[in-house]
Amino acid sequence: MKALVSVKRVVDYNVRVQVKSDGSGVITEGVKHSMNPFDEIAMEEAVRLKEKGKLTEIVAITIGGAKNEETLRSALAFGADRAIHIKEEGDVQPLTAARAFAAALKKEGAQVFFAGKQAIDDDANQTGQMVAALLDIAQATFASKVELDGGKAVVTREVDAGLETLEVDLPAVITTDLRLNEPRYLKLPDIMKAKKKPIETVTFADLGVEKGAALTISKTSAPPKRSKGIMVKTVDELVSALKSKGLV
């Protein structure tokens, strides 16, 4: 059984994101980028399933410019067998990305599409669901436990009320949440080996994908600062203030 895992190159989670003064975006030049942490969890899960014999092949896939090859190399070091690089320099929003991934999923005949539940740059939380919608296949988002069995997957999902379990027929989309696993350290020998694994480069045209509708970003601004509130003098005052706001 083959799995396709989408991995996105994003500004590293340790980097303090700075909004440009002219409102044209955030500073991404010269700052560290790495694989979206939720995608690392997706990669880790796929690798564990392969180690358990539930998957036979893992194909990592990304969309973006030349630098995204680094991200694919990381995926290969995690344990992907090969990688597909959809080369596109411009802005790609979730609907377009989903169209490309859906086309690739079909072409590859993969049974599972793993993705992080969201990317930590645009925080959209859409692409996985859209892939499933476009192919009219099942989705299990925000997974905290995944079991693959024959043509089915049993997935535990983190929902607001607790943990929900779904059974889905394959092929299916599974998006991964924080508690699913702890991604392994990439080991140097694996990184060395990853340099030799194959990366196939394709374009939207090769996949027969047209760019979809897109949002226009007119301005980027820093979040408003929290302002100083009220100083209370006693615990009683605090309790009544909290009660009046319905907080206790």
Partner: peptide, 18 residues
């Protein structure tokens, strides 16, 4: 979790960027 799960599925079917 419910809205985030469902909305993109609707948007994609409508051909809309959510």
């Amino acid at each position: 979790a419910f809205g985030k799960d469902t909305a993109p599925r609707v948007a994609a079917r409508l051909g809309v960027q959510q």
